[in-house]
Design a protein around this nucleic acid. Structure first.
Lengths: 192, 192
DNA sequence: CGGTGATTTCAGAAATTTCTGAAATTACCA
DNA sequence: TGGTAATTTCAGAAATTTCTGAAATCACCG
């Protein structure tokens, strides 16, 4: 059984399928997501089966995976017993979810493993050096995640302007730089 | 054959191995990278074989993959015919490389597929709606990559201060906001 | 209740990815 | 040029992941 979709939609769905593997989700999950993303209306499982030409159980598992990622929403039509699925409308919401989930799966575990190893007592020069390197990695990741935690608090408007600012960030920093580094030199990181 | 490593190093290597799959590289590639990252000296292929207990050919393929990612450096010791491998010392260099390579593999292809689809003529309402959604996605990704392109130009010092600024970005933006949005309201996005 | 349709589960089949050992290639040296 | 050590290639084995169909479960309705 093969796909049954308008050409433009099909290209998009196929691409997301191929990309899926690079993104740590599998082909079908990628395709299901892509399909829901571009559909004007929520779809039920059987419609996905028909559109993508894959087994019903595969769709069920795919949707379950997407729900674990909080990337799809469950909708109910009145008087219809079936489950319907969509993606959030707001693409910024999608972006945030994606960032949050990837952080949870890809960086948090590493951070906690690093912390565990770093409290151990090194038993040799090799281990001492290894710990030193891990400490560097740990501190970088921590800086990045702290920054991310701050940025994700921003509302959409402000986030958008942070992005739009873009190339001008540099110039802004040049100004800020002096102020900040001045403050830093006096007393270490006084916050308020 | 099993691993032969100091306990702290082994924990780190095993974790990177497990994580590997979530990062789109495989277990051995993750392990090889982790091992090189914490080693005080460059290692040759046979040392990696001994340390990780995997086949010589597997190490060869792993190293080749890591080179494709520009994540390892090839070194030659004088009077020794073997190849030795390390990771870059500077963790910020590593971060930049990682970001660059992931962008190249994970976002650039999507961006170009989206562009291709967006120039097509929609043949139905379904396709029209799909294009609309893809345009939203395209514009968001483009904003993000533009921002990324700007930020990656920053030298380490400035990048560090951008990060350290962290929570204060918000406050800085509040000030900038008015200026920017003021400019926006008068005439649409006049830049200079 | 008992029936009906939607959904999930799960064991095994199919597909894909990873890993290995043996053979081929490369690079250097005498 | 021939010899030797290092490295790469690659076909198939092993492991892992994905997918399916059949059966089980769930949820609602009369």
């Amino acid at each position: 059984m093969s796909m049954n979709l308008p050409p433009l939609v099909q290209s998009f769905v196929l691409h997301f399928g191929e990309m899926g593997s690079r993104w740590g989700i599998n082909r079908t999950v990628g395709q299901i997501y892509a399909l829901l993303y571009v559909s004007p209306e929520p779809l039920c499982a059987d419609e996905i089966v028909a559109a993508l030409g894959i087994s019903r159980s595969n769709v069920s598992m795919g949707l379950r995976e997407l729900q674990a990622w909080s990337l799809v929403l469950l909708k109910h039509l009145p008087g219809d017993r079936r489950d319907f699925f969509t993606t959030p409308d707001d693409i910024w919401v999608i972006l945030r979810t994606l960032a949050e989930e990837r952080k949870k799966r890809e960086v948090d575990p590493t951070l906690s493993v690093l912390r565990e190893i770093l409290i151990e007592q090194p038993a040799s020069d090799i281990e001492r050096h290894a710990q030193q390197r891990m400490a560097e990695m740990h501190s970088m990741i921590e800086r990045l995640t702290n920054w991310y935690d701050d940025v994700k608090q921003l509302d959409q408007e402000r986030l958008a302007s942070l992005l739009t600012l873009g190339s001008r960030v540099t110039k802004l920093l040049e100004t800020t730089d002096r102020i900040v580094s001045l403050g830093r030199k006096r007393r270490p990181a006084t916050r308020d």
